[in-house]
Design a protein around this nucleic acid. Structure first.
Lengths: 152, 152
DNA sequence: CTCGGAATGTAGCCTCGGCTACATTCTGTG
DNA sequence: CACAGAATGTAGCCGAGGCTACATTCCGAG
């Protein structure tokens, strides 16, 4: 408690942040955005591998709601980044790096969803919004979320 | 109270969501993403107009941390979308639609930041992450945030 | 009133993440 | 075992959102 009125009173209509501060905030949001797609792919591939045994481009495409060509192109990017391996017509697998990224992403996803639920967000909205939100949750924020959940 | 363990026990490694459900979630996250940039511009322009009296492309670019040419191109998009007006060398102004979007965006931004602070996120992280998160907060989630803040 | 530096605008290039259309390979069924 | 249909892969297009380089316009100091 007391955490709420740090500087609330006036700042509504005045008090822009310092220029470099603001630029860096926006910059971070932009950076977070690239990488978000790769994270989604890696997490999904990991899920598919665990639950079904194989991750085929068509399945991935259907799950993500994109054309299969788009999925294949992005899988190519995953390979370039060293997150996945795939031989033609043989399905997609994750590298060490890919697996560990997937694990981190999945953990973060769960914390975000749980936090949303804990503050009263309805289930479907929580799952849906988390898909976008999670990519912008920094380590500091994630830690705070976990702490909040722990003391609930 | 109970809100926490809706389906927590097993779902870790199995139980993917239904295909169309998942596709729609990802689709929403993608959609939210386009529009995010416009929202940032509109909010910033509104802030600059209120606090300084004018919004010049160079200021906008500096604040956002991008090259001035990028800002000018995006301002062009704002004009096409009917959110802003600008005559060459005359600064940028918002239309009715632009102002009302700015108001909504700013309100949402405040709620998101306040919620992050309320669950214990440190100030700088809250401001920084909010910049990315806010664009993925649906109305349902926003309402839940407001409710949570009200009863704190 | 002129002239130089800052602001503004234009052009052209890049990558990413979509798409469609078409080509190739695999595979299960008759 | 052949072949149709599904899965996979390739090519080429588009818009968004970055960038640099260059051209133009504005404005304030001398």
């Amino acid at each position: 408690m007391s955490v709420l009125m740090v500087d609330s009173p006036i700042r509504s209509a005045s008090a822009l942040p310092e220029e470099p501060t603001q630029a860096s905030r926006f910059g971070k949001a932009r950076t977070a955005q690239s990488g978000a797609l790769l994270e989604d792919y890696v997490e999904l591939i990991s899920d598919l591998l665990e639950s079904g045994g194989e991750a085929r481009p068509t399945d991935i495409a259907r799950r993500l709601g994109v054309a299969h060509a788009t999925a294949i192109k992005t899988i190519g990017r995953l390979k370039r980044e060293g997150l996945a391996v795939a031989k033609p017509y043989r399905g997609v697998f994750l590298t060490e790096a890919g697996e560990s990224l997937a694990a981190r992403v999945r953990a973060r996803h769960r914390v975000v969803v749980d936090l949303l639920l804990a503050v009263g967000v309805p289930f479907e909205a929580a799952e849906s919004d988390a898909e976008g939100i999670e990519h912008h949750v920094s380590d500091a924020t994630l830690a705070a979320f976990a702490r909040f959940l722990a003391r609930s």
